[in-house]
Amino acid sequence: MPNLSQNRQSAELLALGGAIRRLRMERDVSQEQLALLAGVDRSYLGRVERGDNNPAALTIIKISAALGVTTADLFAAADL
């Protein structure tokens, strides 16, 4: 379900989602492939990449691992 809170598409969520998308595309991985590797639904991953969802810490860790980067590197790529 989409996040309809005031945090939806905050600058931080947009930056994190953009970093995930950039890293995914650099690795030539589809959204569906990354979602499978991270153990999340593809539509959920799409909402995270758009900044519509505020992912839990464990989800961010799983996405980072699926991208082959540390969570710290993911946050650095997002300038967070």
Rank of each mutant, 00 (worst) to 15 (best):
L4E: 11
A15C: 08
T59V: 15
N3K: 10
L14A: 10
L16V: 15
M25K: 13
M25G: 01
T71F: 00
P55E: 08
D28H: 15
A15D: 12
N54Q: 12
M1A: 13
I60K: 08
A76H: 10
A76C: 03
L45F: 07
P2T: 11
L13F: 11
K62R: 15
Q9G: 05
P2I: 14
V40K: 02
G18H: 08
G39D: 10
L80M: 15
E49W: 02
L67G: 00
D28P: 00
M25A: 13
P2R: 14
Y44N: 04
V40A: 05
A72C: 01
L4I: 12
N53G: 01
S64F: 01
A72W: 07
R24D: 05
R21D: 06
V29E: 09
M25Y: 03
V40R: 02
R21S: 13
S5D: 14
K62M: 09
S43Y: 07
D79K: 15
S30V: 09
S64C: 03
T71C: 10
R24P: 04
N53K: 14
P2L: 14
A78P: 08
L4Q: 10
L16Q: 05
I63T: 02
V48G: 03
Y44R: 03
N53H: 09
A11G: 06
L58T: 12
L67D: 01
T59L: 04
N54C: 06
S30I: 10
A78H: 09
T71I: 03
P55Y: 08
V69N: 02
A15V: 06
G51T: 06
A56S: 13
K62C: 11
M25F: 05
D52G: 11
S43N: 13
L23A: 06
V48E: 00
L80G: 10
R27N: 10
L13C: 03
R27Q: 15
A66I: 05
E26A: 14
I63F: 00
D28S: 14
R47S: 09
V48S: 06
A38N: 07
I63E: 00
R42G: 00
S5C: 04
R24F: 06
G68A: 09
A66L: 06
D79F: 04
N7A: 14
R8I: 04
A78T: 09
R27V: 01
A65T: 12
N3C: 11
L58D: 13
